[in-house]
Structure formats: structure tokens, C-alpha cells
Design a binder for these strands. Structure first.
Lengths: 208, 208
DNA sequence: GTCTATAATTGGATAGAC
DNA sequence: GTCTATCCAATTATAGAC
């Protein structure tokens, strides 16, 4: 039985190459990064890169799968109290925004969107590993909250989609377009609060 | 005084080249398109392309500016009646979705997002020509509706942002990721109706 | 301005030694 | 598996004739 590999200091050439490729692709996209640059960054020869990954496309796919799997795995809403609706929604909101607005998530979104015509399959992989998981977690909570009488929801799927849409807001798009940098945590909390506020105006127990 | 140039059949080599480049870039992105391909498509030599545009980057920039300017120019909400709130919001909603979900808009979004690290300035150009215009039009209507007592809005800017976010919903993201094709108009109308419905639950005159 | 032909470079991928 | 050296195709950009 082995320990899990460290995240910061990759062990082995394959991990080193994957790590270097990840940095490079997330920073510059697919087209602007050369295999030479990746090999240089990983401090190995190009032949070694090809010994582990058959092509640039394959390496790119491995990076996307790696990022998606690792980055979105932790999102959960299981332990939240459906009776304390505002606090629970606010917690979900902050977790969601922390995740989707993180520089790494934005970078992955960018390259997948930009290369969707060249790698249509990657979108599907990413969507299942990322947004779908978030959706299921959030819908689970909304369902429990509706059952507890904390929310007046007919269509849980729709309400969940609208909640996530309110959360993303304009800031997510502006980040994708590179129009603003990293928010301070206070701004993020404010965005979460405004989305929760409006969501509760529409779906709160007293609204219908 | 000359007539405006026809849109379908570009007049002159420069326009022909721009047209061909537009088709190619929108279909495949920046990196996957070669100047050879553009010259071939435009039925001119590569030297002629370079006679009109100094570089591939410059040609790309011209395409983005052209698309942004032309595509978003027509969005307006000026003539809508703030007293017939549901109908007016629904009209805005359909126009907005028609625009932002159109294949051409999705394609432009994709290439700008994908190349944002290589062409940071293009995002700004596009944002001003597109989303900002939509925002201003929609806020103008919301302000009139709030003044008329048709909506209960404190912060017009926020309400407008949330309305647009509800409209984009999941479908906009799924389009960006290439996960679904062109909607039939009925589905689009349904998405508009659901967003308006929720918006009115939150901001309608009876809700607060 | 427009063409043909070509320069100059880059970049993905591999051969062969160790 | 790993390296050095190299091949080969594609691509941006330009020279020079008309």
C-alpha cells in the first residue's frame, strides 16, 4: 500500500510532465503551448514526454481529466440544515462561487470552451465531473428544503438552475472574458448574499 | 453618396477577405485556421491578404470588431410599454435569448474566451459592443417600469444583472460547451417564460 | 494591388543509442 | 525509460515580377 502522491511536488516523470503541462495549458490554452515548452518546463526531453503521452491531444485530455476530477470533487451540501434556509443557502452560495470563480476553474473553462470544436469529447467529460455534480448537490438540498416547508418550489430542477444562474451572475462571465481579476472574499460574499436574497424573494416560504 | 455594402456578397477584395476570415475563425477558432485557408476561401493569394491586413492577429481583430459591431447593434427595448410588464419582459427576454444564443454569438464568445490570454484587448472591445449595450437597454426599461409601479426594484443595476443571469441560465453555458445544438423556437420561448416568471416572483409589484 | 514562388521558422513526432 | 539529434509537415510572412 502506497501513500497518495503529493500534490505540490509530483513524483515520477509522468506526474512531473502532467504537472508542467497543466501549468502551461491553464495559463495559455492549447494552441499557444508547444510540446517543447512543456518538456523544457518539466526538465525532460521531448522524447520522454512522448513516451508517456502519445500526442499533444492526449496530454491535453489527461490534463483536463485531472483538473476536473480533482477540482470539483469536494463540493457538497449534504450536512446543511434545511430549516435554517438563509444560512444554508448562503453557505452553498459561497462554496459554489469559491469553486466556479477560482482562477483554476476559470482557466479550465476557458480552454475547454475555446477548443470545443477541436475536442468535443472533453466538454462532456468536464461537464459530468463539474457542473453536474454541483447541480445534483444543490438540487438535493433544495428538495429537502422544499419538503421541510422552507421553500416554495414546484420544479426543483428549474429552481436549482435559476439559483446557480443568479450566483454566476455577471461576474462569472467577466472573469471568463478576463475583464477582472481575483475578487476579494468580501466581494464574493456580497455576490452570494445578493443572489440568495433574490432567490428567497422568489422561492421563500412567504412569497407564494 | 454610395449605397451601403451588401452583407451577403462582399464587394472588393478587402471585404471578401474579411468575410472569408470571419467564416473560418467563427467555425474553428484562431489557432486552427491558417492564412492559407483564408486566402483559398477568399479566392485570393496569401500576399493579397497580407496587403490588406498586416498579420493574422490584425485580421482576427478586424473580424471580432466587425462581428461585435454588426451583431449587437439592433438590440433595443425602447418602445416597450412599462405598464404591460409581463408582455414587455417577455419580449425583451426573447430578443435577448435570440441574440446571445444565436450560433454566431456563441461562436464569437468561444473564440474570444479561448484567446483571452493572447488577445486581452479584444475582450474589452467585444464587451462594450455587446453585453454593455444589452445591459443599458434592459436597465432603461426596468427603470421606467419601476417608476411606473410595475416592478418593486431597489437596485436597478442589480435587478438587470439578475434578469440577464436568469435568462442565460444553463442553456447558454451548455451552448458554449457545445453540449447542445440549436434550440427550436418553442424551447427558447419556454426558457424566456420561465425566467420572466421567476423574475416577477422576485420583483413583481405584489411581491414586496 | 495582385500574383507565383519561396524564405524562415516553428512545432509535432520519431530514430537510435544507452 | 530517457536522452540527443533530426525529420517532416505546416505555417507565417515576404520578395519580386506584372
Amino acid at each position: 500500500m502506497r501513500m497518495a502522491e503529493a500534490r505540490e511536488e509530483p513524483v515520477g516523470k509522468a506526474a512531473t510532465i502532467l504537472h508542467a503541462a497543466r501549468q502551461a495549458f491553464l495559463a495559455s490554452g492549447f494552441g499557444a503551448v508547444s510540446m517543447d515548452a512543456i518538456a523544457r518546463e518539466a526538465a525532460v526531453s521531448k522524447a520522454t514526454v512522448y513516451a508517456h503521452f502519445n500526442s499533444k491531444e492526449a496530454l491535453f485530455g489527461a490534463v483536463v481529466a485531472d483538473v476536473a476530477e480533482q477540482h470539483f470533487a469536494g463540493f457538497t451540501a449534504l450536512e446543511l440544515d434545511p430549516h435554517d434556509i438563509e444560512a444554508s443557502l448562503t453557505t452553498i452560495a459561497r462554496r459554489f462561487l469559491d469553486l466556479v470563480l477560482s482562477p483554476e476553474a476559470i482557466a479550465v473553462n476557458r480552454i475547454i470552451i475555446g477548443e470545443v470544436t477541436r475536442f468535443p469529447a472533453l466538454s462532456e467529460v468536464f461537464w459530468q465531473a463539474g457542473p453536474e455534480r454541483n447541480r445534483i448537490q444543490i438540487e438535493g438540498f433544495l428538495r429537502r428544503a422544499a419538503a421541510a416547508g422552507s421553500l416554495a418550489i414546484d420544479d426543483v430542477r428549474l429552481a436549482g438552475e435559476q439559483f446557480r444562474s443568479l450566483l454566476r451572475g455577471e461576474i462569472y462571465l467577466r472573469r471568463l472574458f478576463g475583464l477582472e481579476g481575483r475578487d476579494d472574499p468580501a466581494a464574493l460574499a456580497g455576490a452570494a448574499a445578493r443572489a440568495v436574497h433574490t432567490f428567497l424573494r422568489a422561492f421563500g416560504p412567504t412569497s407564494s
